[in-house]
Write a protein that binds this DNA or RNA. Structure first.
Lengths: 199, 199, 199, 199
DNA sequence: GATGAATGAGATTTCATTCAT
DNA sequence: TATGAATGAAATCTCATTCAT
């Protein structure tokens, strides 16, 4: 169903449910996020979720789209407005971690979903694509720096995996140590990957 | 029960079941790894698993112990025998990725377990400790380099998280792209973190 | 959940399931009363029971509450309206046995639950409290007679245990000998305990 | 298999297992007394129990026979050696409670079995016969007193049920209140039933 | 649109029993 | 005789989904 075809109420319900799904996934983990628990938090019957989303897969997909959308929206402008690729990479890392600091749950939920989801036959799972998109976006920044000669001659994909790997490890740390100093982490990571990428 | 008190047959069965558990977890993912599927692969009834391991938790614990044991055994000597911390770090990364290349499934299973385990109330889960151990081990190598003056003045834990984050991202990539050139990946990562850590 | 917050249909289902649980427990015994059998008699799936009661414990608790409630409601007014404690004791026994004659299964189920419940570590079990309540209620009647001087100087608790022991032995007899003359039994027991308690 | 055809070792094993079964039943309750737990306490494999007893039913039967045998052996002489039926009844109660005080577990186990056992179709269960025997034995004492004119004109079976019901309620009380003053209980019960039976 | 009710599958665990050694 | 290993059934519980109202 296209977004344009939905009524205002329909959209409101969807948003509410997605928000509760984020809360539950971030709090209890992807494996413990059943429709019952999400419905209970939303003070809604489980049937509503199936009604609005067709099924759990679609709800999760909506969560991914929502969070990725917000994240992209918030972060992309800051990144692409930088004058140099090195600045863009630095801001990429800072923006990701700032987002975690400001809205830890959406990003924690997103990482939970993206890293945990697997099809029942073991295949990549329906949300692996999102991860691939994130990697690809990051590769673009790195390719920019390579093109301009700011960055040394590294493998784009490997570097992108390492950067995302480091960033994606953070939410789990936050879950364990809620008082984690994220700004400190951001500074350390920017220095780390600046040194790792510069010529 | 101590290992010494177990029969030869008991040990054989346990090993077989652990091997099947690794296979299933690596292939289908932690969330899809039910006792039924593990038992089916092992061509035994599910009761056998409870008989030999008491329960699922203990089986998973056995998998963790097995793989972590092998990995430590194979990697630690190579790492500690290095003359410099920089070499040790390089070998740490190389050894991890070589292990993935030689035995992709055990390490994929281990990473699945360690990163996915969460208590039903959302708490850290019983295997988070293993991750903490891995981080701590890595911190020791980094601390060594800091002590000898080989490494620059970075935050030990952040650097350890980044390195493990990058390494832990690899199994998922292998699952999606089985033909991944792991040696290439290893070379890139060693260069990356050498530049990131050196003075 | 308060009774008032439940739907009419919800209440009907609960009542039906409780009734089936009583039937099964009374007919097959507490140990043989599985959710499957109760569900089968109710012609619903086992999940329905968990849905309405959360779990087996809660269902059993509901049975206890239901039967104890009915029994108390039917018997207490008759007992307390007596002029003397001796009459009250006589009516206590008569009312209990009449209840057994009119509704043998609920009381048989109650006695099965109350006398058979044990925690898995051998502890008193969650329904032992109900037995204690029954004993305490009986002790009150006995204390009344002691206060008024109608009764001799016996130990309250021992007498209460003996009376309840005698009454609680009846359902099992009914199960074995369905044609048991309960009125005859009631007359004999009232005489017995009248002689045992009077001054 | 007749007792006479069993070897000494065979008998020793059976006794040991029966003793452990008593311990487990008395401690954990009939419902929680699995062969595994009995075997574990006996430091023996579960197969041994099936080997020596054919199955669980036969083991329980052996427990019943053993305890009932001991109890009868210890109590019957004391009872029948009394000069009057009133004394015999008094000694019957005293002997039962003294047995509980000296060897609480065997009798607790016996009562657990006799009162809890039910066939899977809800029928009387294979050990109800033992209860019937106990009732019948008690009826003989009561009949004696009726014959001699010591006792009033009560219904034999009802009185027997009441007495056994009172006695059988004691083990459960001991389980809940281990410090119960059994001698006190015995004195109270003998007075109670003396008054209830005398002319 | 929304709800509560119900289903049926699947998960883990425990149990009595059997069997090869 | 005895053991440890294995089975298969049964039990409880949870889940995603469907459906009548």
């Amino acid at each position: 169903m296209q977004s344009g075809t939905r009524t205002f109420i329909e959209e409101a319900r969807r948003s509410q449910i997605v928000a509760c799904a984020i809360e539950v996934i971030a709090t209890l983990g992807y494996a413990n996020a059943s429709l019952s628990r999400i419905a209970k938090l939303a003070k809604v019957s489980t049937g509503v979720i199936s009604y609005h989303f067709g099924g759990k897969d679609e709800l999760i997909q909506a969560v991914v789209a929502e969070v990725a959308g917000i994240a992209t929206e918030l972060m992309t402008p800051r990144i692409v407005s930088q004058a140099t690729a090195a600045d863009a990479l630095r801001v990429y890392i800072e923006a990701n971690l700032e987002f975690m600091r400001l809205h830890p749950k959406p990003l924690l939920a997103l990482v939970e979903i993206v890293t945990h989801s697997r099809a029942s036959d073991g295949g990549p799972g329906p949300y692996a694509a999102q991860h691939e998109i994130a990697i690809a976006d990051l590769e673009k920044v790195l390719a920019w720096g390579r093109r301009t000669g700011e960055f040394r001659d590294f493998d784009l994909r490997t570097m992108a995996l390492a950067i995302r790997g480091a960033i994606d490890a953070v939410p789990a740390q936050i879950a364990i140590f809620p008082d984690l100093d994220i700004d400190h982490l951001a500074r350390e990571l920017t220095v780390l990957f600046t040194l790792a990428t510069r010529k």
